[in-house]
């Protein structure tokens, strides 16, 4: 049973019709082939229409779809082999952040990403994809390991934010993220960061400093979630749709503003509607990017990575007339 969003209502209705027609067809008394074909093409048409003009809030909803592929789903489906590595060597293993060596098309890579859960128990165990400081420190440990063995790093970003809590603060959530930003900027191996779902704030950026920062078509990336933004600026949760527009958090906006390097298209209707196709696209895109980045030497990579982030921001500058 699929979950439909409000804006998918026309699709849901058509699919319901289709199901009824198929039932009639199956009984074999009336030939419905023509009608069925007509509805099928209308479904496709409607999907195309709806998905070509999604607004910010609708993308946010798709990015959170409970059936969307998560980090470990991608790993399982694009890697020929994968060895998960655990722990930050200090406090514990954070299962909201997973990582390990894997092979994609014959190339060994370090893959790291936030992991969400599918059911209540898993969600709790994965802390809803909100990593603690030890998660960020594990990520950094694995990146350093990749650097040592000269393997590229791929990160999958999917988090509603870094975990806010007593223990996170005690163990230095701010310091852990800050350290990652600084170390990732000068990592000597290629770094590819892909937002596969939610890209919320410092919790996302903490594994998001790369040579290629890419967003899937129906994801969002910003400094704050639309809900929290609404509650702070409008003092109510009611304005989340307005906030989502104002934050310019979609892949298209982010690319237009020069804050990401590219967008990977999703199957029509979102990654969850055809996961197999999504994995195929993901694998191809990663291999393409690796091919490009592996040609560059370490100094060139680091220099251009730092230059790219240093150029981000828009200010007004008065000419100095003194």
């Amino acid at each position: 049973m699929s979950t439909y969003f409000d804006f998918e209502k026309p699709i849901a209705e058509l699919e319901e019709q289709l199901k009824d027609m198929q039932k009639v067809q199956d009984k074999g008394k009336i030939d419905m082939t023509d009608k069925i074909q007509e509805v099928e093409s209308r479904i496709l048409q409607t999907k195309k229409e709806i998905y070509s003009r999604l607004n910010g809030w609708q993308r946010v909803q798709i990015s959170r779809h409970p059936e969307r592929p998560y980090t470990l789903d991608y790993i399982e489906n694009i890697c020929d082999g994968f060895i998960e590595l655990h722990g930050d060597r200090n406090v514990k293993d954070d299962s909201a952040m997973v990582g390990g060596f894997g092979q994609i098309g014959g190339q060994t890579v370090m893959i790291i990403g936030q992991q969400k859960g599918r059911n209540t128990k898993q969600r709790q165990q994965r802390n809803f994809g909100m990593a603690n400081p030890e998660g960020y420190r594990k990520a950094l440990r694995l990146m350093k390991l990749a650097e040592k063995f000269n393997k590229p790093v791929i990160t999958f970003i999917d988090t509603p934010g870094a975990s806010p809590g007593l223990e996170a603060e005690e163990r230095g959530q701010g310091e852990a993220i800050a350290k990652n930003l600084m170390e990732m900027a000068v990592l000597k191996v290629p770094v590819i960061c892909i937002v596969i779902g939610e890209g919320a704030s410092g919790g996302a950026l903490g594994i998001g400093v790369g040579d290629k920062v890419i967003m899937l078509e129906n994801t969002w990336y910003s400094v704050i979630s639309p809900e929290s933004c609404s509650s702070i600026l409008w003092r109510s949760w009611e304005h989340k749709e307005k906030a989502a527009e104002a934050l310019k958090l979609t892949a298209n906006d982010m690319l237009k503003n020069g804050l990401i390097d590219g967008i990977i298209n999703e199957p029509l209707g979102g990654a969850h509607t055809n996961a197999a196709a999504m994995y195929q696209t993901m694998k191809e895109e990663i291999l393409k990017m690796l091919g490009e980045l592996l040609k560059k030497n370490a100094a060139h990579l680091v220099e251009s990575r730092i230059a790219k982030f240093s150029a981000m921001g828009v200010v007004e500058e008065e000419s100095q007339s003194a």
Binding site: L181, V186, S222, L249, S310, M312, V314
Partner: peptide, 25 residues
């Protein structure tokens, strides 16, 4: 972060940290 600059604001974290990496080196 300054919410009115959204992702631009977020990226200042990466920008300043990258510069500090150079200072550190």
């Amino acid at each position: 972060a300054r919410m009115m600059e959204a992702a631009y604001s977020l990226m200042q974290m990466a920008k300043t940290s990258a510069k500090l990496a150079l200072l550190d080196m």
